[in-house]
Amino acid sequence: MANQILLLTTFLAMTCALVIAFEPSPLQDFCVADTTSSVTRVNGLPCLDSKLAQADHFFFSGLHIPGKTSNPVGGVVTPVNVVQIPGLNTLGISLARIDYAQWGVIPPHTHPRATEILTVLEGSLYVGFVTSNPDNKLISKVLYTGDVFVFPVGLVHFQQNVGKGNAVSLSSLSSQNPGVNTIANAVFGANPSISDDILAKSFQVDKTVISSLQAKF
Results as ranks from 00 to 15, higher is better:
Met1Lys: 14
Met1Phe: 12
Ala2Cys: 09
Ala2Asn: 13
Gln4Ile: 05
Ile5Glu: 13
Leu6Pro: 00
Leu8Ala: 11
Met14Pro: 00
Met14Ser: 09
Met14Gln: 11
Met14Leu: 15
Val19His: 09
Ile20Arg: 13
Phe22Gly: 12
Pro24Leu: 10
Ser25Met: 13
Ser25Gln: 14
Pro26Ser: 12
Pro26Lys: 14
Gln28Tyr: 05
Asp29Gln: 11
Cys31Thr: 02
Asp34Thr: 08
Ser37His: 07
Ser38Trp: 04
Val39Cys: 00
Thr40Lys: 14
Val42His: 07
Gly44Thr: 04
Leu45Ile: 12
Pro46Ala: 08
Asp49Gln: 09
Ser50Lys: 13
Ala53Val: 04
Asp56Ile: 06
His57Met: 04
Phe58Val: 08
Phe58Tyr: 06
Phe59Tyr: 12
Phe59Thr: 14
Ser61Leu: 10
Gly62Cys: 12
Leu63Thr: 07
His64Asn: 15
Thr69Trp: 12
Ser70Trp: 03
Asn71Glu: 08
Pro72Phe: 08
Thr78Met: 07
Pro79Phe: 07
Val83Phe: 06
Gln84Ser: 07
Ile85Tyr: 08
Ile85Thr: 09
Gly87Ala: 10
Asn89Cys: 04
Thr90Tyr: 14
Gly92Tyr: 11
Leu95Phe: 14
Leu95His: 06
Ala96Asp: 05
Asp99Phe: 04
Asp99Glu: 04
Gly104Pro: 04
Gly104Cys: 03
Val105Gly: 00
Ile106Trp: 01
Ile106Asp: 08
Pro107Leu: 01
His109Val: 00
His109Ser: 05
Thr110Gly: 00
His111Leu: 04
Pro112Arg: 06
Ala114Met: 01
Glu116Lys: 04
Leu118Thr: 09
Val120Arg: 12
Leu121Ile: 13
Leu121Met: 14
Leu125Ile: 03
Leu125Ser: 03
Tyr126Pro: 01
Val127Tyr: 07
Phe129Ala: 01
Phe129Tyr: 15
Phe129Pro: 05
Phe129Glu: 02
Val130Pro: 09
Thr131Trp: 07
Thr131Glu: 05
Ser132Gly: 10
Asn133Ala: 15
Asp135Thr: 12
Asn136Phe: 15
Asn136Trp: 11
Asn136Glu: 05
Ser140Tyr: 05
Lys141Asn: 05
Thr145Val: 09
Asp147Val: 01
Asp147Cys: 00
Val148Ile: 15
Pro152Thr: 06
Gly154Trp: 08
Leu155Gly: 02
Val156Asn: 01
Phe158Asn: 03
Phe158Val: 00
Gln160Ile: 09
Gly165Met: 02
Ala167Ile: 05
Leu170Gln: 02
Leu170Asn: 02
Leu170Cys: 02
Gln176Arg: 06
Pro178Cys: 10
Val180Asn: 11
Asn181Ile: 11
Ala184Glu: 05
Ala186Thr: 15
Ala186Val: 10
Val187Gly: 03
Val187Ile: 15
Val187Tyr: 05
Phe188Thr: 06
Phe188Val: 03
Phe188Ala: 02
Gly189Arg: 10
Ser193Arg: 10
Ser195Asn: 14
Asp196Gly: 02
Asp197Ala: 10
Ile198Leu: 15
Ser202Val: 11
Ser202Pro: 04
Phe203Glu: 06
Phe203Ala: 05
Gln204Ala: 14
Val205His: 12
Val205Tyr: 13
Lys207His: 11
Ser212Lys: 15
Leu213His: 13
Ala215Trp: 06
Phe217Tyr: 13
